[in-house]
Amino acid sequence: MNVIELKNITKTYHLGGGEEVPVLRGVTCSVERGKVVALMGASGSGKSTLMNILGFLDDPSGGEYFLDGQDVTHLTSSERADIRGSRIGFVFQNFNLLPRTSALHNVMMPLEYRRSACDRKAAKLYACELLERLGLGDRMNHHPSQLSGGQQQRVAIARALVNRPSILFADEPTGNLDSVTTVEILEMFRRLNREDGITIVLVTHDEEVCGYADRTIHIRDGLVMDGGFSESKGVQ
C-alpha cells in the first residue's frame, strides 16, 4: 500500500512583476509503506520543493496529494502543523538543534506542541530510550556544542522520532558529515526502517546515499524521471 501518493503535483512561484517560475511541473509518484525512498536530483531540479510539499511545509499549486489514502492537498496551516507534529518527522542537513539545550531537551522539544494529552514522564522515558537506541545514552545532558556532527544528527533523528511518526523526511541528512559518519547515519536509517517499519524519504544528490534506499526517484527540471519506478539494488 502507498503511504504517499502524488498526482500531477505542480508548484509555481510568483515573483514580483508577474513573473512566474514553475518549479514542479506535474510530479506523479508514490511511496510505499515501510520503504526507504531516495529523492534525487541536481540542485535546482525541484527536489527540495517537492520535499517541502511532501513534508507539509508548503502547499502545492495544483495536483493532488494523498497521505494514507486521505486527500491532504488543501489544508489550513494549522492542520498542516498538526500533521507535521503527529505523523511525520524531519531530519535536516544542518541538524537545527536548539543551542545551549541538552540533547534530552532537544529530543523532547516537539512534545511541547502535542495536541493530545501527553504523560511527561512517559515521554521523557521514551526520549531517553530513543537516545539510548541511537547510541547516545551517555550524552543526554550534553549541549549540541559538545557533540560531534554525527552525534548531533543522531540527536536530531531522535527528535524526529519522539512523536512516533510513520514517515521520516531527511533533507540531505549527511550533507554536513564526513564519509564515516555518513555511513553510520545511513545505517541508522536502515535499522530504524527495519526495526520500526518507518517509511523514510531521503532527499539527496549523493549517489552513495541512494545506495541505501529501496528505490530512487530521480527529479529533473521539476519532473520525475523514469516514471518514478527505478528500483535500486539497495544494500540488503
Binding site: G55, L57, S77, S78, A81, D82, R84, G85, S86, G89, F90, F92, N96, L98, M109, P110, E112, Y113, R114, R159, A160, N163
Partner: peptide, 16 residues
C-alpha cells in the same frame, strides 16, 4: 528565525 522554523516543522502552529 531558524528555531521558529524548526518549531513549526515539528508541529508548532502559528498560534503556538
Amino acid at each position: 528565525t531558524r528555531e521558529i522554523g524548526l518549531r513549526m516543522a515539528v508541529g508548532a502552529r502559528s498560534s503556538d
